[in-house]
Design a protein around this nucleic acid. Structure first.
Lengths: 240, 240
DNA sequence: GCTTGCCTGCACGGTGCCTGAAAGTTTTCT
DNA sequence: AGAAAACTTTCAGGCACCGTGCAGGCAAGC
C-alpha cells in the first residue's frame, strides 16, 4: 500500500517577505503565488513605503523592483540598511541597462531576476538566498525522488546515478515536477509556473519539453513521468 | 431548462460562494445548481458589482467569468484582494481561438473551467480549490463506497483493491454516482450534471457509459450499479 | 405474445498527445 | 564583431483513445 497522503501545500519555509513593486498586476501575481507557496507576504508600492514597512515588519527577505516611482531600488536598500538591518534582497530588474550595479550587489549574497521572469525562477532564487543567509542550513539544496536527483545550486541532475545534461528550461520543468511530486499538474499550471509570465504561446510547448525530459531522464525503468490524458502530468512511482 | 428531481441535499461544505456572470441563463443555471449542491450562493452580473459584493459578503470562494462587460476578471480579483482578503477563485473562460487571456489562472491555488463545462466539472474544481485553500484540510480527496475507491486529485480508481483505468467521461460519471450513492439518478439528471450544458444528444449515451462502467468497475460481486427500469440508476449495496 | 425500455457491439469521426523537423532566437566561442 | 552552437518555439503528421450515434438483441412488465 504505497499510496501517499495528498498534501495540500508545497512545503516551504514560512519566511516573512516584503514585496515592493509598483505595477499592480505584477504585485498581485507575486503576492498571490508567494503567499500560496507558504511565505508570509506583505507588500509596498513605493520606495518610501517600502523603507518604513521594512522598519516595522522586519522581513527575512525583500523582493524589490529596481524601478520605482519615487526612489530607485538601490536607494531603498541603502536607507533600509542605514538602520543596521542587513536584510537580503532579490531584485526585479528590466533586462537592459543597469546590469553593472546589479551584478555588484550579488556579491553581498543578494540576487536578482530579470523581467519578465517565471515564478519558479523567482521562488528558486528566493529559496536559494534564504538558504545562504540563514545559518543552521535547514533546507537542503538537493531534491531527490526515487532514483532521480537534482541539485539546485550546481544544476546537476542524476538519474539512476548517471549524470544527465539538461537545458535551462528542461531543468526548471524537472525541478517543478520534483517539487510537486505525486501531485497532478495541468499543462496550464505548468505554463503558469515554469514559463515567463508574458509567454503567449500554446500548451504544445509543454508537451515538447515533457518529451525532451522523458528522453533524457525517464528512458529507464521505472517510468516516473506519467500522462493523465485530459488532466495533466504527474511525477510518481508506478502503482503496484 | 434544468431538470431536477426532488431529493435531499448532497452533503457538501456549506461554503459561501459569490458567482459573477453576465449571461443570465448561465447565471441561473449556476446559482440554482450550486445552491442545490449545498453552497450559500450570492450573485453579481458585473465586475464592479462583484467587487462591492465581495467586500460586503466576504465569500469563501468566487466563481468568476473572465469576460465581463465592465472590468476583466483580473481587475476584479485585484480590486477584491486590495483589502487584504485572499479569496480563492474559480474562473470561467471561453475556449475560442484567441486564447490570449488565459494565463495566470492557476496561480495562487486558483483554477479555471472552460465554457462550455459540465456542472460536475465545476463543482469538482470548486471543491478542489476549497480543499487546497482551507487550512486544516478536513475534506479528503478520496471518495469511498463499499470496496470502490476514487481519488479526485490523482484520478485513480480502485475496485476491490484493483487499479482500474477510466476515460475522462467514465471517471466523471462514476464520481457523480459516488457523490450521490444510495440516491436514484434519472438519465436526464445524469445528462444535466455530467455532460456539458450544451450537449444536444440523446439519453442513450448514458446507457452506453453505464455499460462501460459496469464492465470496468462492476464486474465483481457484489454488484453496486443498479438499474431501476423506467426510473434511473443507483449506486448501492445489494438489498438486505 | 407484444410492447417498451435497456444493454451492448460496432463503426466513424474527433481529440489529445507524442515526436521529428524546421524556423527563430539567444548564447557562446573564436 | 562575426560565426557557430545551443536552445526555444512552432508546425505538422501520426497514432491511440475517446465520444457519439446506430441498430440488433434481450429482459421485464402488461
Amino acid at each position: 500500500m504505497v499510496r501517499m497522503a495528498a498534501q495540500t501545500q508545497p512545503k516551504q519555509s514560512e519566511a516573512k517577505l516584503l514585496v515592493v513593486e509598483d505595477d499592480a498586476n505584477i504585485l498581485e501575481l507575486l503576492s498571490a503565488s508567494l503567499r500560496f507557496a507558504g511565505f508570509d507576504v506583505s507588500t509596498a508600492t513605493s520606495g518610501s513605503a517600502a523603507v518604513s514597512a521594512a522598519k516595522n515588519t522586519t522581513p527575512d527577505l525583500v523582493v524589490l523592483d529596481v524601478m520605482l516611482p519615487d526612489l530607485d531600488g538601490f536607494e531603498v536598500i541603502r536607507l533600509m540598511r542605514e538602520g543596521g538591518q542587513r536584510t537580503p534582497v532579490v531584485f526585479l530588474t528590466a533586462r537592459d541597462g543597469t546590469d553593472d550595479k546589479i551584478r555588484g550587489l550579488t556579491l553581498g549574497g543578494d540576487d536578482y531576476v530579470t523581467k519578465p521572469f517565471s515564478l519558479e525562477e523567482l521562488t528558486a532564487r528566493i529559496r536559494a538566498v534564504l538558504r545562504r543567509t540563514t545559518q543552521g542550513d535547514d533546507e537542503p539544496s538537493r531534491l531527490v525522488f526515487a532514483d532521480l536527483e537534482l541539485d539546485e545550486e550546481t544544476h546537476e541532475v542524476y538519474r539512476a546515478g548517471q549524470r544527465v545534461q539538461l537545458s535551462p528550461t528542461e531543468f526548471k520543468l524537472l525541478r517543478y515536477l520534483m517539487l510537486n511530486a505525486n501531485r497532478v499538474l495541468s499543462k496550464a499550471q505548468i505554463l503558469d509556473h515554469v514559463w515567463k509570465y508574458d509567454f503567449r504561446g500554446d500548451d504544445n510547448i509543454v508537451e515538447s519539453y515533457i518529451s525532451y525530459l522523458r528522453r533524457k531522464v525517464d528512458n529507464v525503468q521505472p517510468r516516473l513521468i506519467h500522462t493523465l490524458r485530459g488532466v495533466g502530468y504527474v511525477l510518481r512511482k508506478p502503482a503496484v
